[in-house]
């Protein structure tokens, strides 16, 4: 109970840091309202659940990205790590015939290891995160292609069951992936709010020099967030392979951008230090609802999604700019 009241007391800060999240929330409500007003079927709660089903993997990836961006870094490798995970799982399951319970932890480990490696290079050699993760992006994609250049379908029973089973409540249903994604969000929210690792993440994003002078474990934290991002990407890759039932080196091209967009639209400052995983959840939903709206509309083509996301990115970055400028 105390936990809940604390959460509430912390949320009740009269604080403009919540402005972006509130903006996202109202945007989401507005879009949903417009959708529901125009298309009868849009009002159906299953539409919302479908947004989760179609974007569960993105949600997980974006959660990892939130950690990285909170420290003021960026991780461009996530899309490639997702693809690598699908490819690695598919090839181990299908070509090697390894059992699912071996493959699953293994691919998660590979993703985390990649993140760990990048984190070490970023921290110890003081190279800009974007260029290191860029190299990581090349590396992971390249590894995909060394495994194979064509799509490998997966028919492992566990994978298939994860893909096809539906968790039903009443008339509605979600896929197991959605549950996994939401659990990830909850764990991440907990870690950020209630552990030293989480608070150190914010501290580094707020002022890395101070964090160091205050005696915080900057090295450990920085490497940890990239490891978390790597892990989340790998988990996102697993969820994507549940969703697609295939491994392919061209999966998730450009997903890093979607993840960054979701984080930014969700109100996390790109300069670090401020933002919430719940905001990222909203950000992912905004992206999902845009897609759904455009699908429902039928007249607008799919590329409008990108244009709208770009426009939203612009608006939210501008909003961040205004807020940080006013603080000074």
């Amino acid at each position: 109970m105390t936990t809940l009241s604390q959460v509430r007391s912390r949320i009740s800060w009269p604080n403009q840091k919540y402005l972006p999240v509130l903006a996202t929330l109202s945007l989401l409500a507005l879009m949903y309202g417009v959708g529901a007003a125009n298309y009868e079927a849009f009002g159906d709660a299953q539409v919302v659940l479908n947004v989760f089903i179609d974007n569960g993997f993105l949600l997980v990836v974006a959660v990892g990205m939130t950690f990285v961006i909170l420290t003021g870094g960026i991780d461009l490798s996530v899309g490639s790590v997702v693809a690598l995970t699908t490819m690695l799982s598919a090839s181990l399951l299908q070509d090697r015939g390894w059992p699912a319970f071996v493959v699953l932890p293994l691919v998660l480990l590979v993703g985390s290891a990649l993140g760990f490696g990048m984190g070490c290079i970023i921290h110890y050699f003081d190279i800009q995160p974007f260029i290191v993760t860029l190299a990581g992006m090349f590396l992971a994609r390249g590894l995909c292609y060394t495994i194979g250049t064509s799509s490998i379908p997966i028919d492992d029973p566990f994978w298939v069951s994860m893909a096809q089973s539906r968790i039903r409540f009443g008339d509605y249903f979600v896929s197991p992936s959605v549950v996994i994604a939401l659990v990830v969000v909850l764990i991440a929210a907990f870690v950020l709010a209630y552990t030293r690792l989480g608070r150190n993440t914010y501290a580094i994003g707020g002022n890395p020099r101070s964090a160091l002078l205050m005696g915080l474990p900057v090295a450990r934290t920085k490497i940890a967030v990239y490891t978390i991002s790597g892990f989340c990407s790998a988990l996102g890759g697993v969820l994507l392979s549940f969703y697609m039932l295939s491994g392919y080196g061209l999966h998730a091209v450009g997903m890093e951008l979607d993840a960054i967009a979701a984080v930014v639209i969700g109100g996390t400052l790109l300069t670090g230090g401020s933002g919430y995983v719940l905001g990222t959840l909203l950000g992912v939903m905004v992206l999902g609802v845009i897609q759904t709206l455009i699908t429902f509309d039928g007249r607008l083509s799919s590329w409008w999604t990108k244009i709208v996301i770009g426009a939203l990115l612009f608006v939210f970055i501008l909003l961040q700019r205004v807020i940080t400028a006013r603080k000074r």
């Binding site: 260029i131 190299a135 994609r141 390249g142 292609y145 060394t146």
Partner: peptide, 16 residues
Amino acid sequence: ETTLLVKALVVTIVCL
């Protein structure tokens, strides 16, 4: 496709 691997290697080395 391994070009990407080589590029990754080159970027890393040059940056280091």
